[in-house]
Design a binder for these strands. Structure first.
Lengths: 150, 150
DNA sequence: AAACAATCATTGTATATACATGCATTTTCT
DNA sequence: AGAAAATGCATGTATATACAATGATTGTTT
């Protein structure tokens, strides 16, 4: 569905304006799809994102700062998200011995287990785009998005 | 800056996976730019969005439902956003005489005035993409995003 | 017309986001 | 070494989001 119909707006100032709106709308759409996929696992998209980063570094720990740097939404509060994950037993947190200001965050076995199921669900969601775009088109989309961010 | 550097992730499963992340990241980036532009006007991006929709319909009123349908993020609570805007004197709200379940929301003169300044600021932000993408590329980006959403 | 279902908006609750502030620890400067 | 600045994290506050529930009004069915 074209963006014009999706938000019932007939005209845009130009293609740049439309692209801005379109990126925001598509992100919101992806976010909703993700929520559906993650629903059975009782974690938010941001929590999923943190778990993925931690799996990427496993078994090395990550500091809260390094999590923030790697998160897609830099503004979400990694500190509080880690706390939520800890309450669920999905991560562990201990103070870093080399720099006591830092905190070492590590994903637990339970976290790894949940993540493997959750990412399977997310990948199934993502794969639905495959019938819409060729891999070359997806690559082209990536190039355009990268270029858009001045 | 390529997405790989932006979130310090070297590899992705495939271009589809990367595109998903890239859309979300770019939307977050746009959102931050928008926040900067809107800061002097003390309105959130969602409030700005509602004002724009109301201007588009002016002098016709919009129901809360029609606002939700036209909003970029359908899940944000239009009812509460309208209440915020009313408190600031930027919109008026009266019950619809044809259907008393509905509410007629109309942008005020003050709202129109603020919006004209705020949208100028937003357009200045958006125009910075012009040095990064040609209009054809922006159009291509729109086509790919439209296609991505199955 | 009366009963039932559907629609529209609001409100309550839990969580997330934006941003500022505070506190402990480490680094830098003199 | 001691003072000052910077860094890393946590927390407080206001706002926003996700989703369910409520209440009022309108539409539909028989």
């Amino acid at each position: 569905m074209k963006i014009e119909e999706a938000i019932q707006q007939k005209k845009f100032r130009d293609e740049y304006h439309k692209a801005h709106i379109n990126v925001l709308f598509t992100a919101s759409w992806i976010h909703q799809q993700s929520l559906k996929a993650l629903k059975p696992f009782n974690i938010s998209w941001q929590q999923f994102n943190i778990l993925r980063i931690l799996r990427g570094m496993y078994p090395e720990p990550a500091s809260v700062k390094s999590l923030t740097e790697r998160m897609i939404d830099k503004m979400s509060n990694a500190s509080r998200l880690v706390e939520k994950l800890k309450q669920k037993g999905l991560v562990e947190r201990r103070s870093c011995k080399f720099d006591r200001r830092q905190v070492d965050v590590v994903i637990t076995d339970q976290g790894l287990e949940l993540l493997s199921q959750a990412s399977a669900a997310m990948e199934d969601q993502m794969d639905l785009s495959k019938s819409q775009l060729s891999e070359e088109q997806a690559a082209q989309l990536n190039d355009l998005l990268d270029a858009m961010r001045y």
